[in-house]
Write a protein that binds this DNA or RNA. Structure first.
Lengths: 255, 255
DNA sequence: CGGAAATTTGATTCAGATCAAAATCAGTGG
DNA sequence: CCACTGATTTTGATCTGAATCAAATTTCCG
């Protein structure tokens, strides 16, 4: 609504899909993506965009900001399943699952573009190869959740937090938002606690340990990796599960 | 290879897809599913069918038995991401993700039907609506992992185990394998430990508590629910995340 | 400058881990 | 049918990573 129109190649949504596709998008495909009718809205931080139990008739793309997919226990405990970065379509699943099984909330002020399911169905009819890209996108999201589950189920807090930082940096780098291994990190410590399956107090202590080890620094909602190799080692981080194509493995070299 | 040919309506694979589809399958669609060229093989318990890092050119359907999708930490800790029941296609994701990000192993002796990716692509070209069913199937798998993650991240051992039992019974019931709320449960306690993110010793103690509470009994690889309402309550179990259609919510009534 | 939120630190407790050993069970072959 | 063997399951004793409770600090904004 406000702000500039994105030329096709910098439209965050298109950019993301290009980063996911296993083949280069044709001009027509890119144009079709850009032409998707999208209703743009802004959200403050900590607002639910969709809620568990909703039966949405549209999806949304994250154009700016951060959102978290989460579920809660009847007793009110909260578990973040995944963070989503610019370009993601966090509730794409709603296209084939009638009722949402998780909520999605903003973590920082965000710009959201809503797209009707019907518009996507038309898109897929017109550009069948894009369907594969979107399907692939949901599969990658699932892969992230699986790695996260290994993290929560089988690693101790220190490793978990390191792993989360590695993932954030790598994913943001893939869309150009983590130059020099530094990135926005709007999550508060209680937020991180919900993502890691631990308590806020323990997040604080774990963070202190990561800083003390010289791996990262955090100042003013911004994360900076001071020792990438050390952080990766502490995190047991192997980016294969992110299913990024080619270069990103190389872009963050091993030595 | 041995055994009877399944008539279309009892072929476990077709049955599963019918249980997932949001619309009744046409005769042609069912026939096309049955006609999928499938290479059938048998596996003993505790065999890897596919391994993390593989680049498969085929998927497999579970025709008989149980399999577990899992990942491991470099230090050898193992986390089961999901159990799969008869009719599932546990590595359907490999259709669009080149390299597998988890391994899948048998939990009990199993019969497996391998299907070439190309055969699926042909199927989808011929029967486009089946593509949606398969996509939906991968989305449901993802939903199960999310619920499992809430389980592991935010519930204590007792609740976790109860939840796992509820899920097993409900899913097996959906394919006719849990009459009277009793079902095969071939997982050993160390296996369950890997699924719940706890230790085998603690599984044993937690199981003892569930039995002592009169909720379940286990004898000879078979789980029997003695108090379904009690178990559901202990588990905070709400089957919505399974995305079963209609009746199954009703089939296991609340009172 | 003031007030609310977020971070940090300390003291104590607990769910679950770890270590170790017994008891039970399931096959297997004689 | 039983004795033997290895795999499970069960029980006990002890330890620890993370939770809980509580109280400062610091940071962020209007």
């Amino acid at each position: 609504m406000t702000g500039s129109l994105h030329p096709p190649d910098t439209h965050p949504f298109v950019r993301k899909m290009e980063s996911i596709a296993l083949f280069p998008l044709s001009r027509e495909e890119r144009a079709a993506l850009c032409a998707l009718p999208m209703h743009v809205a802004r959200f403050d931080a900590y607002q639910d965009i969709v809620r568990e139990g909703d039966r949405p008739s549209r999806c949304f793309a994250l154009l700016e900001g951060f959102v978290a997919a989460y579920k809660t226990t009847p007793s009110g405990k909260r578990q973040v399943m995944a963070y989503h970065v610019v370009g993601d379509v966090p509730d794409l699943q709603s296209l084939h699952l009638k009722v949402l099984d998780n909520s999605i909330a903003t973590v920082s002020p965000s710009r959201i573009g809503f797209v009707e399911h019907d518009a996507l169905r038309v898109l897929f009819r017109e550009q069948p190869k894009l369907l594969e890209v979107f399907w692939r996108s949901t599969l990658i999201d699932a892969a992230l959740v699986r790695e996260w589950m290994l993290n929560i189920g089988r690693r101790e807090a220190y490793t978990r937090l390191a792993h989360l930082f590695c993932e954030l940096i790598t994913r943001l780098d893939a869309v150009g938002l983590a130059p020099e291994r530094t990135c926005a990190m709007p999550m508060t410590q209680p937020e991180l606690a919900d993502a890691l399956g631990i308590t806020p107090v323990h997040v604080n202590r774990t963070m202190r340990d990561l800083k003390a080890a010289g791996l990262v620094t955090v100042r003013g909602r911004r994360l900076t990796v001071e020792d990438w190799e050390g952080l990766k080692a502490a995190a047991e981080f192997d980016p294969a599960y992110l299913h990024l194509r080619s270069e990103d493995g190389a872009k963050l070299p091993t030595s």
